[in-house]
Structure formats: structure tokens, C-alpha cells
Design a protein around this nucleic acid. Structure first.
Length: 602
RNA sequence: GGAGUGGUAGUUCAGUCGGUUAGAACGCCGGCCUGUCAAGCCGGAGGCCGCGGGUUCAAGUCCCGUCCACUCCGCCA
């Protein structure tokens, strides 16, 4: 094993780059042994790097036979360098790989490093347990799919910087990672201070206040591809640290920000997928999204809107499930499927209720409309004929239809029907996997009331500006105030959201007051920020996009873990480095921290 | 905090009603083989059945607990 080879022979090009046009050239390649096929005479070795695979050929009688003798000993994942002539494979081409028309007839080969047999094979088709993959993440990342995802991510980052910084006058500015803990929002990751005993920094949930301060500083347009941290429980599309494309602009209103983002996603989708995103991206109000789809991030790749039947059924339907819901102040909504024939009795009795149950639905009532117009199913006998006719007209369906009903309080009804709509859309093949349906969700309520806490909370965040027309209702009817907030949604996934911010301290004061923050708390948590507002703050607003989710959608991945180099598990641990871990008593001492770990009962 | 699914060879899995020596495929090791590219043929090695209890003559299998991973609810301004 020698590195002398490297000094003498520079790489000609990456493995995946060889083509017909290189035939006749001398070439030097480096990479990992993907596979070797020893035919007793000729030996073929597939050499892999992150760009692809090229076939090496070793002939026993070629040169003095040394290269062939070394090739005979090669094993998978050994790191080698090889030098030889690029030759055409003639009619023996391999159409499955881009380099399949050529191979390298090797004159000289050197083993740069041997390798143990890896715990799983380095190829895309394998379905290895995620635990093993994460423990040996560096091996997992050798797989073509994952390395391509990371390469694509790099490219998107470059395009992003060019679009905003070069084409639209943004400055790429950095914000602190050691920041101040904030009262509302997600749980903070905390960092103890050594020099301030008993005090803590928080890792930023987002650079929200700093980016607004940049506007107050006159930076005019700010962008950052930044890491954010939230100590909340994880999902397939949620990691404890994630990357946000963070933007903030001065002297703009909602329309200008939307237009800017429309241009951005169009550019990225064109460059990466080659598809054209129709712009302007359509918008839907929060209220309409909730009414029609039961959720504030609707998947618009297919129809199947929900219908609110509360008014029609109240006082007229005798079906027990409905009357019970009405007595408790609930509502009834329905998902009408024009052709429900492919959904079986088992779907109706088991599968669909099981899908709805996690959202609190105690059941899914249904009615099937036969070709002759006759109703069957549990709901049928609780409705008179006139009502049935009225409902069908209202939902715009007829014979052959299947109607799914959920009756409960509004939050349960919407959440479970939103889920059922997705499941049914998928089952019936209504979702075109090639389609990308973007939309803006706008006109969010400013506040939501928390029954448990007995107070109002900011739906977006406390710096969000109310709509000009609604400012008057701040004190009289906070629930009706709409915010200048917007979410960008793609195929039912929230890509990001933002708002126009409050730039006047009197309005900010009124919002803080409404949120129940007294003077002392305001000074303690946001004192510097309130001060800053009073020194000439320009009107401004911004948005943040989840880059991990965006990459997940661009890569067609099901999980963020496939687009993040070193992701964490659902319990936020890193299986490779075994973090988090205990630290030495001396380290804790220095930080003035004592741990109190609950001991399991003996 | 809660619900569900899973954990058996390096990997992916099978393992019947609790009953002989826990199997298969791929990978790995050795041999053969001159155009393969998911190479082929022959042979071989490889097991703390996640961990700890319990029931039983007997546990991979049944029961209890626990750990880990995944999916979801709550949570994520």
C-alpha cells in the first residue's frame, strides 16, 4: 500500500464521467471497489465514487500481468487507484449505467486501503434497518441515492444564494447560535454559561428577532441558510436541528414577498426537476382550507372537498351519532366520494376508522348510494327522503357515491376527515405522483384561544402584524383579527411560512398586552426589541422555508433522514457518535450544573 | 406523556399447536470458470433468537418488565 501512485498520477476524471468520447485516452481513476467478477482469466472490477461507476478490465496477459495479479486479491470497498486506456466496449455495452459504453483496460493498479466487509451492502436496493444504517452513516452515505441527495442539496444551496444575493440584492448575514431563551414557542435547547453561574443560553428556534433587528439596522434584505433547534418530539418530517432558508425584507407588503418566493420555487423546480411551476402560485384562505379540506395545509393534487352538513342535519337527522354530537355543540362534516365502489366493507368498518381514530374520531359513519338511488349503511335510516335528496345536491354527488361522515367537535371532525381524504385520495389513485401542487395559505387568524391556559396565543408569533382592516378589533374581538401571515404549502406539506411584522411599538404593545405579557415580562424578554422598535423601524416582513423538507420533496424521499447528512433518531440521539452522552463531573462543576436523574424503582 | 409496529446468521426475512440438531436468500470465505455487469457453478464458515424475570418436563414461540428503532397522536409561537 503506497501513496506514491497518487503523487505520480492525478485523477483524470470521476468514475461516473467516462463516455464514448474518451475512448483512446489514458486515464487515472480512484474509488471504491463496488464489485469484482473473476472469470478465471479476465477480471472485471466496478469502481465507484460519488459520481457513479466505471468498469475496470484486467487481462492476465496484459503488460507483465502484475495488475491482474493485484486485481485477483481485490475485495469490495477496498480503495484503489488504477491507470490505463479507455476503450470501447463495442457491442458489449451495459445500458444500465451512463459509463456503460466504455471500460478501462488497466495497466497499473494500486491498493490505497483495504476494507473490512461492511455491515450492509453499499447499493440502493437494500432495505437495511435504519438502526444499522445510522450507526454506520458514513457507509450509508456511500450509497448512490443518498450521496446524490447531498449533492443535489449542495446545488440547491448555490442556486438559492445566487437567486437572492446576486439577483435580488439580499445580504447573506449570520446570527448567533448562542442566544436568549424566549418565553413562547417550542422548548429550547439550553446551554449553561460557565462565566455566569446559573444562567443559560438557548439555541435559536429561529433567528426571528435577529432578522428583524437587521431590518432595523438598515440591512434592507437579509438571507441566511441557517440551523434552527427545537427540543420537541420528532417525526419523519421533523428533526431537532433543521435548516431554514431565512429571509427578511424592508419596505414590502405581502404581495412582493409572495412574488419573490414564487420566482424562487419556480427557479429551483425548473433547475432540479425540469418542471414549470405555474405562477403566481394560487392562494387559499385559512378559512376556506379548513372548510374544504379540514386542514391548513391542503393537498391540492386532487379534489374530494369536505362538506359541512351541520346546518342541514341539525334538528332533522335522527341518527344517534349526529344528535349526540349536536347536543355537545359539535358539528358534522362529510367526505363525498363520487365513485366509492372500490372501497370495501372492511375499509369502512376497519381501515378508515383506524385512520381516523388517532385524531379522536370515535367512528366513521357512512352511506352508500346505489345505482337506483337507494341509500344503505348506518346513516341511511336516520334521514328522510327529502333530506337525502338535499344532501346529495349539496355535496354534488349521486348514484354510486360513498359518503363518509364524522360527527364530533370541530377540531376532531376536521382533523380526521382531512386524514380520510388523504387516505381515500391515495387509495383511489387520485394523486398524480408527478404533480406538484403549490399553494399559499393566507389570512390566518392572529390569535387562537387556549381553553386550558385561559388566554390568547399568537398563532404565528407575537411580532406578526394584524391586517390593517382588522386592527380595530384587537381589543374588542381578538378572535376575528386576521394576520398578515402566509404559509407556502406543497402537496399537503408545509414548506414554510412568514408574515409582515409589526413595526410600530404601540401596536406591538397592544399585542403583548393581549397575550397576557405584563410590563415586567415584556421588559425582561423583549426589552431590547421594544426599544429597537422605537428608533425608526421600517415596515418589513419575511418568511422561512424548511430546507430539509424542500429537499425531501425534491428528492422524492419519505424521511428527512434521507436528505440530512447526519440525522438523529426519533429520540434525538446520534447512533454513530452515541450522542448525547454523560460528561465528566469536572465539566459539570465548571458549568455550575448538577444533574438530577430519576432512578428507576428497584 | 400516549397508541401502534418491529427486534432470530453480516443483511433481509421464515420459523406451524410450546417439542429432535433454529432454516432460506443475499453477503462473506475457499475452489473452478476469458465478456461479465444482480455474473455463473461447486463447497464451507457463520446464531446471547434485543435484554431481564416468570410459567412449564420443555420457551425463538406463552406471560410480565425493560431497552432500542420506526410510524402516528399530543407537542412543534
Amino acid at each position: 500500500m503506497t501513496t506514491g501512485f497518487i503523487q505520480q498520477h492525478k485523477r483524470s476524471r470521476h468514475c461516473g464521467a467516462f463516455r464514448d468520447e474518451h475512448v483512446g485516452q489514458q486515464a487515472t481513476v480512484y474509488g471504491w471497489v463496488q464489485s469484482y467478477r473473476d472469470h478465471g482469466g479476465v477480471i472485471f472490477v466496478d469502481l465507484r465514487d460519488r459520481t457513479g461507476i466505471v468498469q475496470l478490465r484486467f487481462e492476465p496477459s496484459h503488460g507483465n500481468g502484475t495488475a491482474h495479479a493485484i486485481a485477483d486479491k481485490l475485495r469490495t470497498e477496498w480503495v484503489i487507484g488504477a491507470r490505463g486506456e479507455v476503450i470501447s466496449r463495442g457491442t458489449n455495452i451495459n445500458p444500465k449505467i451512463p459509463t456503460g459504453a466504455v471500460e478501462i483496460l488497466v495497466d497499473e493498479v494500486t491498493v490505497l486501503n483495504e476494507a473490512k466487509t461492511p455491515p450492509f451492502e453499499i447499493k440502493d436496493e437494500i432495505d437495511t434497518n435504519e438502526t444499522t444504517r445510522l450507526t454506520y452513516r458514513y457507509l450509508d452515505l456511500r450509497r448512490p441515492k443518498l450521496s446524490a441527495n447531498l449533492a443535489l442539496r449542495s446545488r440547491v444551496n448555490q442556486l438559492t444564494r445566487r437567486y437572492f444575493c446576486e439577483d435580488h440584492d439580499f445580504l447573506e448575514l449570520e446570527t448567533p447560535i448562542l442566544a436568549k431563551s424566549t418565553p413562547e414557542g417550542a422548548r429550547d435547547y439550553l446551554v449553561p454559561s460557565r462565566v455566569h453561574p446559573g444562567e443559560f443560553y438557548a439555541l435559536p428556534q429561529s433567528p426571528q428577532q435577529f432578522k428583524q433587528l437587521f431590518m432595523m439596522s438598515g440591512m434592507d434584505r437579509y438571507m441566511q441558510i441557517c440551523r434552527c433547534f427545537r427540543d420537541e418530539d420528532l417525526r419523519a418530517d421533523r428533526q431537532p436541528e433543521f435548516t431554514q432558508l431565512d429571509l427578511e425584507l424592508s419596505f414590502v407588503d405581502v404581495d412582493e414577498i409572495r412574488t419573490l418566493l414564487d420566482g424562487y420555487v419556480s427557479l429551483i423546480w425548473k433547475a432540479v426537476k425540469g418542471t414549470t411551476v405555474p405562477t403566481p402560485i394560487p392562494s387559499i384562505t385559512y378559512q376556506e382550507a379548513m372548510d374544504k379540506y379540514g386542514i391548513d395545509r391542503p393537498d391540492l393534487r386532487f379534489g374530494l372537498p369536505l362538506s359541512d352538513l351541520t346546518e342541514k342535519l341539525a334538528g332533522r337527522a335522527t341518527f344517534r351519532v349526529f344528535t349526540d354530537a349536536f347536543e355537545r355543540g359539535g358539528i358534522v362534516k362529510a367526505l363525498a366520494i363520487p365513485d366509492g365502489s372500490s372501497l370495501t366493507r372492511k375499509d369502512l368498518d376497519k381501515t378508515l376508522p383506524a385512520e381516523a381514530a388517532p385524531f379522536g374520531a370515535r367512528g366513521v359513519a357512512w352511506a352508500r348510494i346505489a345505482e337506483d338511488g337507494a341509500w344503505s349503511g348506518p346513516v341511511a335510516k336516520g334521514l328522510d327522503d327529502a333530506l337525502k335528496t338535499e344532501l346529495l345536491a349539496h355535496m354534488e354527488v349521486g348514484p354510486g357515491a360513498l359518503i363518509l361522515f364524522v360527527a364530533d367537535k370541530a377540531s376532531v371532525v376536521n382533523a380526521s376527515l382531512a386524514r380520510l381524504r388523504q387516505v381515500v385520495g391515495d387509495r383511489l389513485g387520485l394523486i398524480d405522483p408527478e404533480m406538484d401542487a403549490f399553494c399559499w395559505v393566507v389570512d390566518f387568524p392572529m390569535f387562537e384561544y387556549d381553553e386550558g391556559a385561559g388566554r390568547w396565543f399568537a398563532m404565528h408569533h407575537p411580532f406578526t402584524s394584524p391586517m390593517d382592516s382588522d386592527v380595530g378589533m384587537l381589543d374588542s374581538d381578538p378572535g376575528k383579527v386576521r394576520a398578515k401571515a402566509y404559509d407556502l404549502v406543497l402537496n399537503g406539506i408545509e414548506l414554510g411560512g412568514g408574515s409582515i411584522r409589526i413595526h410600530r411599538s404601540d401596536v406591538q404593545d397592544r399585542v403583548f398586552a393581549l397575550l397576557g405579557l405584563d410590563e415586567a415580562e415584556r421588559r425582561d424578554k423583549f426589552g431590547f426589541f421594544i426599544d429597537a422598535l422605537s428608533f425608526g423601524t421600517p415596515p418589513h416582513g419575511g418568511i422561512a422555508l424548511g430546507m430539509d423538507r424542500l429537499m425531501m420533496l425534491l428528492c422524492g424521499a419519505d424521511s428527512l433522514r434521507d436528505v440530512i447528512a447526519f440525522p438523529k433518531t426519533q429520540r434525538a440521539s446520534d447512533l454513530m457518535t452515541e450522542s448525547p452522552s454523560e460528561v465528566s463531573p469536572a465539566q459539570l462543576e465548571e458549568l455550575h450544573v448538577r444533574t438530577v436523574v430519576p432512578t428507576p424503582d428497584a
